[in-house]
Design a binder for these strands. Structure first.
Lengths: 274, 274
DNA sequence: TCGCGTCTGTTCACTAGTGCACTTATAGGC
DNA sequence: GCCTATAAGTGCACTAGTGAACAGACGCGA
């Protein structure tokens, strides 16, 4: 359950707490001198679920760093009005101009999926800092590559895997990032993100419930057996996680602060998020 | 039909013809001083269909610039051994370390789909040149953003659109890039790239044939009515093309050398490729 | 504690797509 | 000009997923 700090969108002026920065893995991975370089430009930032950070075509002025249990989705709008999720970003990453490296019209919509708080800074400030620091540039290029890998895998996944596999994958991915087995999401929202019919998702969830994988409440689910859930999912998540580990090994901190996520049977749900 | 220059993989030592460089839009978009900066490092390069440029995990040392009718696919390998196409690159772009900006293990396989020739250079040389030139860096960041948009759209497309729409889209995208209505591809290959069954693709192609959209030969198709084909496709291609135009407007050359692609009814098949 | 909006569960008829098996066509090499 | 490998076409039984419709049921606000 998202903690009570999820208030309406707001942002403190500047020089946000060093504490807050450690709640985002990309920022925590910064060398002290790089952190010192950008810290004065970071401001704290919070948003409710459903908040649209930017729309397609918008000039994206900020880079956003979700922290804690906050999740942001990239959503591509189709001609028929549907919006399909193409990527899910949590405290392991950042949103806004990561690939384009500055101000270009956004292609997707970015929307807050799970509420929470984080940090943000002007893209122009980040770009300026990247010009001064090779290590900073390197870290963000590595993260961009990982994000790209995630999107690549999603293309293949959507072409090849069943709706049950994809739904299970989504839930595991969300829990890995938030560190919370409680998923505040209606079935309607999940169906819409996957680009599939609501009634079928309902059946899939029902079947997971009957197998004891999760509990259903109105507007939220609670995952009871994440190991089984991950086994029912396709391996797309695992492949992407592996790429993150390889590319960011030695850059991301390796500490095991797995947020109490370890299950009895040893499934390491928070490897990427940790 | 790919022209006879498609010989076995080979590469001339250096300082490749300035001519060849104009056959790739990214290189043609370079300012004269930027072109002069990298030209000495460009070498010409050719490959047959099926040539694997790199495999997942490989250290990608070169950036490849397809020219003319050459096409390169990104293919993500699934756990079950299938490989699904996630992106298609032709003379409008480049392959290799575009997003990661240097040497990182590749996530996908890159494979030559249609044979031909082009240019390539060491990633390290390109990165060095980008450090020296803001305009060069800017051009490649813009292209990276466009490639990202293409992949984003593919995620949504695979989630939402029918196989007929996706097959039609693929054919239009290929023709836009090559400038040739002849598509040297077996139905098996097309099915595999889309991640779907071969027998169903056969039925889709059959239906297109009956509607007079294309002719079928063994191992190749010839598109007769690309306007109708594009109408049967989803609009994903159009959306991506629009983003290319917006982001690379004023950077890409705007001349209309549409390679004889204009149809009687005015469908501009080569807008992006031109 | 009541009422109501919205989320969930389920049925039903239907369409899209699968996977296999088998036949038929075709080009290209000798 | 024939042979053969391989690609294309097709029938069939089957499964996955759709979309509309409607009946509860949950929980929040007054």
């Amino acid at each position: 359950m998202p903690n009570a700090e999820s208030l309406a969108a707001a942002s403190k002026p500047a020089g946000a707490d060093a504490d807050e920065a450690t709640r985002n893995n990309l920022l925590r991975a910064l060398r002290p001198d790089d952190l010192a370089r950008i810290a004065p430009r970071l401001q704290s930032w919070a948003a409710d679920a459903g908040t649209v950070i930017y729309e397609p075509g918008d000039d994206v002025r900020f880079v956003y760093f979700p922290a804690g249990a906050m999740l942001v989705s990239f959503v591509v709008l189709l001609d028929d009005g549907r919006g399909v999720e193409t990527g899910l970003i949590g405290r392991e990453g950042a949103v806004g101009g990561i690939v384009s490296q500055g101000r270009l019209p956004a292609y997707s919509r970015a929307v807050v999926q799970f509420p929470g708080s984080g940090l943000r800074m002007l893209s122009s400030d980040l770009e300026a800092a990247k010009l001064e620091s090779l290590t900073l540039r390197n870290l963000f290029a590595r993260y961009a590559d990982c994000m790209m890998a995630q999107i690549f895998q999603a293309v293949a996944c959507n072409a090849a895997h069943s709706i049950e596999q994809r739904a299970a994958k989504w839930l595991v991915a969300a829990i890995e990032r938030t560190g919370d087995h409680d998923v505040p999401l209606t079935q309607e929202q999940l169906a819409s993100m996957l680009g599939v019919g609501r009634s079928y998702i309902s059946r899939v969830i029902q079947s997971l419930k009957l197998r004891g994988v999760l509990e259903v409440r109105r507007g939220r689910m609670r995952v009871r057996d994440i190991a089984l859930l991950n086994a029912l999912a396709c391996s797309c998540n695992d492949l992407v996680r592996h790429h993150f580990e390889e590319v960011l090994r030695g850059v991301y901190p390796t500490e095991q602060e797995s947020a109490g996520l370890k299950d009895e049977d040893g499934f390491e749900a928070a490897r990427m998020a940790s």
